[in-house]
Write a protein that binds this DNA or RNA. Structure first.
Lengths: 153, 153
DNA sequence: CGTGAAATATGTATCGT
DNA sequence: ACGATACATATTTCACG
């Protein structure tokens, strides 16, 4: 795995906040010529360190007002069924994030939907049909005071 | 609030998956001339519908192996202290996401750190020093099977 | 919204350290 | 191995119809 020097980290910190800046501006900010800077950025992309560049939308402005954090407990004696559940979660568009956790709870899901009706539909389609489900708990959120994708290096 | 037509939604869906494509390619994919397409993208940016364009890093490749979902319960009789807690959370770099939820739990935090030591340091600095804290529960995750930022329209 | 032209940016080749 | 300069190609952006 490639080591990241000070300039690479500087580039990553900037692009994590704003990837729409031109390479010439980026190069200037990190103190390199544009070609030298571009080579580094391309190297970081090829290494998969930068795995995507995306536009972030304001959920409320596109009618997605509701976040639900779901704690899921599966039957413990069937670890092979974990993969089945994972596949279902990956296929469900409403689930934006899934964390496999240790302890009483097995998975945490972050579900983003327009309203309660859409959430009920999700429960019916994905959770109630899961044979392996022991129980789940839904934590409803209308407010997301913080949402950062950046890891500052 | 501005209405989104079919082409705007198409643009948003594409840019949520890859915002690094050139405007000419985007224009071609949605069936517009480049200037017409760029005018729409800029309109979406100015309306705050697109609120950021960012590079996403692979956490493991930059040494951030650990996600912790934290359920926080505060003292109920002091709703004014919610804001104090929110400010602390906004200032804490380890907290990448914060959801205010209804029910027994008051907040869900998503904390991203390199290792347990960094998490312990976070707990000491942010959670144990919170006078308003009733209790919290940490759900440790070494696996994040899904992480999507897109809302498909 | 589209066309065409001017201004910028990106990407390549080559050289120097 | 890495960065800088200069040049060629491509894209962004403006004015106008």
């Amino acid at each position: 795995m490639s080591e990241l020097d000070r300039i690479d980290r500087h580039i990553l910190n900037i692009l994590q906040q704003d990837s729409s800046i031109s390479n010439v501006v980026l190069a200037d900010q990190v103190g390199l010529s544009p070609p030298a800077c571009l080579r580094r950025v391309n190297r970081l992309r090829e290494a998969g360190i930068i795995y995507a560049e995306v536009a972030l939308l304001d959920p409320k402005k596109v009618g997605y007002q509701l976040n639900v954090i779901v704690e899921v407990e599966l039957e413990r004696d069937r670890p092979d069924l974990y993969d089945q559940f994972k596949r279902k979660v990956l296929a469900a568009e409403e689930v934006t994030q899934c964390y496999q956790v240790t302890g009483e709870v097995d998975f945490i899901l972050v579900v983003v939907v327009p309203d309660m009706q859409a959430y009920e539909a999700f429960i019916q389609r994905v959770l109630y049909t899961e044979a392996n489900m022991r129980k789940f708990r839904s934590l409803i959120s209308l407010n997301r005071p913080k949402f950062e994708t950046a890891i500052m290096l």
